Simulated assay, not measured.
Amino acid sequence: MKKSYSIEEINSYLNGELIGTTTHLIEGPEQLQAAKSHHISFIGSIKYAKYWAASKACAAIVNDNLTMEPIDNKAIIKVKNADLAMAKVLELFNPPAPEFTIDIHPTAVIHDTAIIGKGCKIGANCYVGKDVELGDNVILYPNVCVFDETVIGENTVVWSGTVIRERCIIGSHCIFHTNVSIGADGFGYRPSEDGRGLVKIPQIGNVIIGHYVEIGANSCVDRAKFSSTIIGDGCKIDNLVQIAHNSVMGRFCIMAGHSGLAGSVTLGDGVIIGGSASIKDHTTIHSGATVGAGSGVVGDVEAGKTVLGYPAQDARDMLKQWVAMRQFMKKQ
C-alpha cells in the first residue's frame, strides 16, 4: 500500500518548526533537483539552498541555521540537523523487507545439533552446521551458509550469499549484506626453505563481531592466525572492504568502500577510514582519528588526528604541500 502524509503529520513526527504550508500529500523523499510536487527534500548546507526556488518539491527539511523562506504552496520544516531528520523520514517510507512464506524453508539444511532460537527465519538453500547457535529472531535469507560452532546473537539479519565460517561469534542486531565473507583464512605465507615455493601458515583463530555491526556487500573479515579478529560494537563497514587477520576495531568505527586493514591493525573507538584508504600491517590508529580517502597509512596515528595522502601525514601539512606543488607547476 502506498504511503502518504500531510506536511503537518511529517512535522509532528520530526518535532520541527513548520514555516508555510502545502496542500500536496507527501509520497516520499527525493533530491531537490529531481523532486516532483508530491516529494519532500532536504537542505543541510547553504550551497544547496539556491536550488529551493526552482525545485518542484512541495516541502524541504532545512537546518535551522539557514535562512530560508517558504514559497507559495511549498513548506519548510526547520530542524537542528537535516540529515538526521531525513533519516527519520526515510524510515517512514521504507518499504517492507522480503517476506518469508514459511519460517524455515524445506530446502534448508540444518544440522541436528544446531540450536535455533524462537522466531528465526531460514530461507531456501541455507546451510546451518554442527553446533551452530542462532539467537531469537535471527533471519538468514536464501543461500546463506553458517558453519560449525558459530554463534549468532538475536535479531541479526544475514542477506543472501553470505558465508560465515566455523567458530565465529556474532553479536545481536547485526546486518550483513549480500556476499559478505566472515571467517575465511587470513592471508599468511612464507618462503619455503628451498626457496622454490611458499608455505601456507595455518589460520586457526576466529572472528568476533560485536552488537549493532553492519557490513556491506562483498566485504571480507578474515579469521585470525591465532586468537581473534575483532570488530567492536556499532561499527559500520561499507561495501568491498577488506579486514585482515588479527585486526582489532574499537567501537563505532566507520570504514568506507574499497578501504582495507592489513594484518594486526588496531583501531581505537570512533575511527573513520575514508574510501580506498589502506592501512599497513601492525599499525595503530588511535581513537577519534580520521584517515582521508585514498590515503596510505604506514605508521601509527595519534588520537583525534586527521591524516591524508600517501604516505599519510597531518592533513593540514599535506594540503599545504599540494598547494605549493600546484603553484610550482604553474611556474614551469
Rank of each mutant, 00 (worst) to 15 (best):
S45L: 07
S45E: 12
S45N: 14
S45G: 09
I46Y: 11
I46Q: 15
K47Q: 14
K47R: 15
Y48I: 04
Y48E: 05
Y48P: 06
Y48T: 07
Y48G: 01
A49M: 06
K50T: 10
Y51T: 02
W52N: 09
A53L: 14
A53C: 11
A54G: 12
S55C: 09
K56N: 13
K56I: 01
A57H: 01
C58D: 00
C58K: 01
C58T: 06
A59K: 00
A60D: 12
I61W: 03
I61Y: 07
I61D: 08
V62L: 02
V62K: 00
N63E: 13
N63D: 15
D64H: 04
D64T: 04
N65R: 03
N65Q: 10
L66Y: 05
T67Y: 02
M68V: 12
M68W: 04
E69C: 00
E69R: 03
P70F: 14
P70G: 09
I71T: 08
D72Q: 14
D72S: 15
D72C: 09
D72Y: 12
D72T: 15
N73Q: 12
N73P: 14
K74I: 10
K74H: 14
K74T: 11
A75N: 02
A75Q: 00
I76L: 14
I76M: 10
I77C: 04
I77P: 02
K78G: 01
K78E: 00
V79W: 03
V79N: 06
K80V: 06
K80R: 06
N81F: 04
A82L: 05
A82F: 04
D83V: 06
D83H: 08
A85T: 01
A85W: 05
A85D: 04
M86F: 15
M86H: 06
A87Y: 03
K88F: 04
K88N: 11
V89P: 02
L90M: 11
L90Y: 04
L90D: 01
L90I: 12
L92A: 00
F93E: 01
F93A: 05
F93L: 04
N94T: 10
P95L: 05
P95A: 03
P96F: 06
P96A: 08
P98G: 07
P98T: 06
P98Y: 09
E99S: 14
F100E: 14
F100Y: 14
F100G: 10
T101R: 10
T101H: 11
D103A: 15
D103I: 08
I104W: 08
H105L: 06
H105Y: 04
H105S: 15
P106A: 12
P106C: 09
T107Q: 10
V109Y: 07
V109H: 05
V109A: 13
I110W: 05
I110A: 07
H111S: 14
T113D: 13
T113A: 11
T113G: 06
A114E: 04
A114M: 07
I115L: 12
